[in-house]
C-alpha cells in the first residue's frame, strides 16, 4: 500500500462501564472509508451496548471512557441526532404509519420536493423495489422490509453505518441476497461500517474483531 488511507472512524481506548464494572477490555479500532468491520463475541459481552454508545443511544447509567471520533470530530458528548451515524437493527423499525416513500422521505434532508421524490425513486429502483412508493410497509416481505430499512438509513447520508445483527431475522436465501446488497451499498456510499454479528459468513476477508479479546482475529482462530 503506497497510499495511506485517511482514518475515517476511530475508537480510542474505548471502554464501557456499568456500575463500575467494565463490559469488555479497552478497545481501539480504526476504519477507513468504505471499510466494514465485523465485531463478534459471546452474547452478553456488550456488542449491542458498544453500538449504542457509538450511536449515542445508550442509557445514561453507562459510563463511557475513551474517545469516539468520526471524520476527525469527537462524538462522545454529541447528541445522537447530531452524530450522523446510522444504525440498522435486525428489526427493520419501519414507521408503520407511513408508506414506503414516506419512510424514505423522512430520512432525506430538506430540499426541493421533486428532487427528493426522484432520489426516493432511484433508491427504490436500485434495490429492485421500483414502484413500491405507495405501498403500506406492513404488506412488504421480510427481505423487502430489510432493504427499505437500509435504504432509509443511507438516504440520511450518514458518515458511519452501524449494523446490529442485520441478517439474523432473514432466512438463508434472503440473507445471502441482502448481505450482498449491504456490502454493495457500503461500497457505493464509501463510508466506514461496523457490524455486530454471529454469522461467520458476514466477515469480509475472513477477519473479525473479537470484543472479548480486544483484537482482530482470523476465522480460523489465529490472532492478527
Amino acid at each position: 500500500m503506497t497510499q495511506l488511507n485517511p482514518i475515517a472512524f476511530e475508537l480510542q481506548n474505548l471502554q464501557l462501564r456499568l456500575d463500575g464494572v467494565a463490559l469488555f477490555p479497552e478497545i481501539s479500532i480504526q476504519l477507513t472509508a468504505g471499510e466494514l468491520l465485523v465485531v463478534m463475541g459471546p452474547s452478553g459481552c456488550g456488542k449491542s451496548s458498544l453500538l449504542a454508545a457509538i450511536a449515542g443511544s445508550s442509557p445514561s447509567e453507562f459510563e463511557l471512557r475513551g474517545n469516539i471520533r468520526l471524520q476527525g470530530k469527537q462524538l462522545n458528548a454529541l447528541a445522537m441526532e447530531r452524530r450522523e451515524v446510522a444504525i440498522v437493527y435486525q428489526d427493520d423499525l419501519l414507521f408503520p404509519h407511513l408508506d414506503v416513500a414516506g419512510n424514505l422521505l423522512f430520512a432525506l434532508p430538506r430540499g426541493d420536493s421533486l428532487q427528493r421524490l426522484d432520489s426516493v425513486q432511484r433508491a427504490l429502483a436500485s434495490a429492485g423495489l421500483a414502484g413500491f412508493e405507495k405501498r403500506d410497509v406492513a404488506t412488504l416481505s421480510g427481505g423487502q422490509r430489510a432493504r427499505v430499512s437500509l435504504l432509509r438509513s443511507l438516504l440520511a447520508r450518514p458518515k458511519l453505518l452501524l449494523l446490529d445483527e442485520p441478517f439474523s431475522r432473514l432466512d438463508e436465501a434472503l440473507r445471502q441476497d441482502f448481505r450482498q446488497f449491504v456490502f454493495a451499498q457500503i461500497d457505493i456510499m464509501n463510508i466506514p461500517a461496523l457490524m455486530v454479528s454471529h454469522d461467520r459468513r458476514d466477515c469480509p476477508n475472513s477477519q473479525f474483531y473479537s470484543l472479548q479479546d480486544a483484537q482482530m482475529q482470523m476465522l480460523n482462530g489465529a490472532n492478527i
Binding site: 445522537m80 414507521f95 450518514p158
Partner: peptide, 28 residues
C-alpha cells in the same frame, strides 16, 4: 419501542420532527 424514536432522530437529525412526525402519530 424507543428505538423507533431513536431511529427517527438519527434519520431526521431533529428531536422535534421525530417526536411530532413519528412518535405522536404512532401513539395517536
Amino acid at each position: 419501542d424507543n428505538r423507533f424514536f431513536q431511529q427517527a432522530m438519527i434519520l431526521s437529525q431533529s428531536r422535534w420532527k421525530s417526536f411530532w412526525m413519528i412518535k405522536m402519530p404512532m401513539l395517536f
